[in-house]
Design a protein around this nucleic acid. Structure first.
Lengths: 140, 140
DNA sequence: CTACGATCTAGAGCGAGGTCTAGATCAAGC
DNA sequence: GCTTGATCTAGACCTCGCTCTAGATCGTAG
């Protein structure tokens, strides 16, 4: 890839915000916090230029955050990647641990869902019978 | 139910904390914030005594919180219940809206899960092939 | 009666995860 | 050259949801 091709593919912070769903504030915050793998390139004027690899990494960050990974873990993962090859086992462990947490979360949510669904059914049934049943007094 | 039976069934804040998983601090906080349906009864000495109905409500609160309902919504729900019969439609709406959010959350988590699973598979495969493949450089 | 642990109130403090502000600079269009 | 909008930095500020502290009181076991 030539320099001009790289420049053509690179994106401004605003464009990256659009593509990732993160705010420009959050993007700068993530960078300060060391959550990115490399330092973001700058134009001669000092503006950030994100490469497609940067964006790919950010999209993964978004997925990990969305699923509840704390910023600290994300930072740790970024550090491992920065260190380069040799620590793949640790990266794997980090991801797999998180996957287990996500599984637990899904299960917990499904339990909540069934409790809520049951309550919704109770109210629906009551309303379907109409106000005629004036004595019904839901405790909750 | 006689007064003494009610007393026998009632629980101290510590016992309720155990049964609900909330801390005693959180229980007092919830009360202050108006998240409970009624005022908690007190002993002559001023200690709280929770009824089984209080505990049942708290268990529902826990499920709703666990599934991401904000305290403000929980408070709103509690207010509706406090107002008594007549607003069941609104309660239903509140719960059903939340159920939809939970569904969306579960779906989002499942997407995250599949992204993570894929990444885990990539690393596993790499590690299974061993370090012989020295040129492999994961971008993330 | 004395300890000692549980509970009380009011209010301060905290950690996570951003968000926003001020004031300056950059870059593109007219 | 001038205007306008995007971006820059450093750092203050915010919301949420508790958590903790201090100092007093209650209540039970010995």
């Amino acid at each position: 890839m030539t320099t001009s091709e790289a420049a053509a593919q690179s994106l401004s912070i605003g464009e990256v915000a659009e593509r990732t769903g993160l705010s420009v504030h959050a993007l700068r915050f993530y960078e300060r916090e060391g959550l990115l793998v490399g330092p973001v390139q700058r134009t001669s004027g000092g503006r950030r230029r994100y490469t497609p690899v940067d964006v790919e990494w950010l999209l993964i960050c978004v997925k990990l955050r969305e699923s509840g990974m704390p910023l600290a873990d994300l930072k740790h993962f970024a550090e491992l990647v920065r260190q380069g090859p040799g620590n793949e086992a640790e990266r794997l462990h980090l991801l797999d641990t998180h996957r287990q947490r996500v599984d637990a979360q899904i299960q917990a949510l499904e339990e909540c869902r069934s409790v809520i669904t049951w309550k919704v059914a109770v109210y629906s049934e009551h309303l379907a019978r109409g106000a005629a049943d004036g004595l019904w007094a839901p405790t909750t």
